[in-house]
Amino acid sequence: MKKRRLVIRTAILLVLTAALGYTFYTHFSEERGLVDAGDEAPDFALEDMEGNTVHLDEMKGSGVYLTFWATYCAYCRDKMEYLKDYHEDYRDKGVEIVAVNVDEPSVSVQRYIDRHSVPYANVIDRGMRVSNAYGVRSLPAVFLIDESGAVVERQIGGKTEAQVLEALDKLVPGSG
């Protein structure tokens, strides 16, 4: 009788502690993105500035460095400079760079790409549909997608050249 009571009390207290602990953990730990490491990358098919279709699904087999940017985002511009330099090297290693502009006027984007001779594929996310699907709330936002189409990492905020290189290395097929 006494033992049973102790078991019941312990059980109730444990359930309460576990529920509260889990709630506190989720509430106070860093927020998980809508799409984050381990998730499958949402598919999209958009035309880039040259009129070629960029279809994420068809890039399976290569690592994809998916970067969301805007002309008014200073960190994005820095990142773009690094990516320009390494774009060719990593293309040969099987890593594609896809830049998604967050719904700016085509003229602005086109002029910017021309001025800075950005060599890799750029799509404009009309209606923010891709950004919404990936849960992009601030720029720059980068998703590292491996050759099987799964997100390896979600990176928010400015990055140094070394960090960008490190990210690209992670994406080389067979590296991870």
């Binding site: 949402p42 598919d43 999209f44 098919a45 958009l46 699904d57 549909r129 891709v130």
Partner: peptide, 12 residues
């Protein structure tokens, strides 16, 4: 006006 999209792929 509310619209509902039936296709899953963005830009299909």
């Amino acid at each position: 006006t509310l619209f509902q999209q039936t296709s899953e792929t963005i830009g299909s």
